[in-house]
Design a protein around this nucleic acid. Sequence first.
DNA 1: AATGAATGAGCCTTCATTCAT
DNA 2: GATGAATGAAGGCTCATTCAT
Lengths: 226, 226, 226, 226
Amino acid sequence: MVNVKNNTATQETKRKLIDAAGEVFAEVGYERATIKEITDRAGVAIAAVNYHFSDKQELYYQVVRHAHEACTNGVRSLEQECEGCTPEQRLRRFIETILRQSMDDSLPVWRGMLLSREMHRPTAATDRFIEETLRCYVTAIEALLAELFGGPVEREQMWLLANSVMGQCFIYPHKKEILARLYPDLAPVADRIPLIADHIARSTVATARAMQEASHRPAAPPAPVG
Amino acid sequence: MVNVKNNTATQETKRKLIDAAGEVFAEVGYERATIKEITDRAGVAIAAVNYHFSDKQELYYQVVRHAHEACTNGVRSLEQECEGCTPEQRLRRFIETILRQSMDDSLPVWRGMLLSREMHRPTAATDRFIEETLRCYVTAIEALLAELFGGPVEREQMWLLANSVMGQCFIYPHKKEILARLYPDLAPVADRIPLIADHIARSTVATARAMQEASHRPAAPPAPVG
Amino acid sequence: MVNVKNNTATQETKRKLIDAAGEVFAEVGYERATIKEITDRAGVAIAAVNYHFSDKQELYYQVVRHAHEACTNGVRSLEQECEGCTPEQRLRRFIETILRQSMDDSLPVWRGMLLSREMHRPTAATDRFIEETLRCYVTAIEALLAELFGGPVEREQMWLLANSVMGQCFIYPHKKEILARLYPDLAPVADRIPLIADHIARSTVATARAMQEASHRPAAPPAPVG
Amino acid sequence: MVNVKNNTATQETKRKLIDAAGEVFAEVGYERATIKEITDRAGVAIAAVNYHFSDKQELYYQVVRHAHEACTNGVRSLEQECEGCTPEQRLRRFIETILRQSMDDSLPVWRGMLLSREMHRPTAATDRFIEETLRCYVTAIEALLAELFGGPVEREQMWLLANSVMGQCFIYPHKKEILARLYPDLAPVADRIPLIADHIARSTVATARAMQEASHRPAAPPAPVG
DNA sequence: AATGAATGAGCCTTCATTCAT
DNA sequence: GATGAATGAAGGCTCATTCAT
């Protein structure tokens, strides 16, 4: 029982540290975050970080790991929810999920911010998680696009389409502050998530369809735009 | 002549410092960058930073300022070049310019990387520049879209389209390393800039046209995708 | 007991630092004093200053505070000792105490030196303490002079007398080295403290008496000396 | 003529430097004074200090030298002025001169402040000047006291009296700020120089007379005060 | 298990001084 | 004669980490 109790206490302290660290890392980044600030917010001693985690790096690793798992879990549970829907509907739902995961204030605020930081420039210790997170997204997108096409898609076209989807999605959370400055009358973005998801989904479907048609008429490729 | 020479020498040292600082800041970010590393690369004494600029912050400010000016100048000169082209051509050229400015290896490598960092999370000292840089892009994009539409565009639709263009463009430079990991067979991206520009331009034009049509047939709005 | 022990250890280190800092500050002044010299003398790590005090300024503040308290405590305990004595005796004892506090080698040497520095030009952070220290002296002197007069004294006369007492006292500690150079045969001054106290007390009493008489014969003021 | 002109220019620059340095040294002390601040106030290049004087120390030396000479010259010219006066009158004039030299605002402000700093703790480079300055004062005082006594004075008594005079004088300039705090209603002191000089002179004469009488009646020494 | 005390490495900055012109 | 550019030495401070308890 002592072990159980201690374990519980330990887990509690670790959780408090991860939450506090998540906030601080998200707010000021890895370098500017100080262990003192984190332990102060968590209400524990400064030596607790080195005690429960081995060092600052490892704490950061665990924090990113938590955010990563929350995101991939979100995508997997979405796949189950949408089993009966059309490909177009599933694409739209998926896009909306990405947007919500990184901007919805009902989720822990720091999660999206932190992954935003990390996606932009992953740390050596965390790039695997980040890669996995994005790969989780990409795999889902590719599956959806394959369904849209109704058959195999050429790799380069898949690449272009997937990048376009992710690019259009991530600009909203990852350049949040700048967008708010450029279009102050259209902030906050979180309120327009359905509108955005609709736009991206439509555009993607239309572009995919156009690609499909073009590839079926190889004899007469459309003239380049520029 | 003495003044001229001295000025030249001063400018020379300042330039060496800005170049070296640009590299280092781009590589490891503001916090991890040390003045010693910068002055070592520039081949000057460590106190030179304090002499020519007042402190690390101001050096950083000047570095971002330089990158900012190079980018906005690039956009402006592009506008002159494309005076006789169709809107579609100009859009494609513009997209290609954004992509080249941030990925082309013939330009100072650090410029794109640094602005990438900054756009993601602008520093207090630099947010004005970053905002201006992006506003320069946005203004150009909006003008092109207005031409495409052949008339005024509703603000929210303009916002969605402009964000889509920027999102699709910036994902390539700003998530460069992650994309290389997700699609190792399609790296390096720099070699595919024309292809990407073509894709984004087509997609944008098609989406814009679709919007235009939809707004002309308000009686029968297309059913939502999802 | 753990807390008690830790507290003791902390207090011990702080005390060592304050003692070492007192010496160094007294010897070379605030600016020339280096934290390294202080921590070396105290036998602790250089970062200990920042840990126990926040910075060099705060350490200095605490050092001055200690010296201040020792001095004011000395004056207060003296007042209790001399309860039954005549005003003349008490004035003499008081003067001797001032002299001893700043020159007696049996007290921590740096205390007098440090206050000497501070009295000459108080730091922004310490002028309150210095003012209090001197005010403690002045209040005691004024009380003694009022007793000597046997009634209220005109403020300007009180001012002249108190300044004269303090001036005659402080010249010995505050211009110690120069006096040693001017009168090498009469050094060290510490051995002559009783003689000096006797001289200053006599002179003060005589001057006070003369003032008193003069004010009782306002009709025939004594001709100015010069 | 070129040499003459150059010499004149050189002297002019040196003078500007000494004046500016005097101000700065007086305001913030040797350590906190920076060469840049001095050369900025003097309106010359930063390298001028090392060019005209060899280093900061030497500049300081010259500044103190100037102040020293001004003071000793003042005492010497006073001696000539007062040739026909009584010893009492000359003592009073002398005291007034000391007070004016260190507090009168019509003189270069920094002179008194700087010597005040130096007297309190002479620098290795300047203690000779300071000693000379004070010795100049002491010699004059001793001569005046000898006249007052009308014959030779025992060395220890001379020491006590001279110290008392100097102590009473120097407390006003050297503890100026603190006195202003302790007696805010009696500031500024400069306006009360005649009153102070009168008080010190009277007190000194009276004390000297008392000493004289005591030494003439060795059979019945006065009982100690305390 | 958990903590407060203490540390060492490293960074930014200041400043007197030098050197080429 | 005089200067602006440039430097090297040194200091204060921060911070992650360790250790005794």
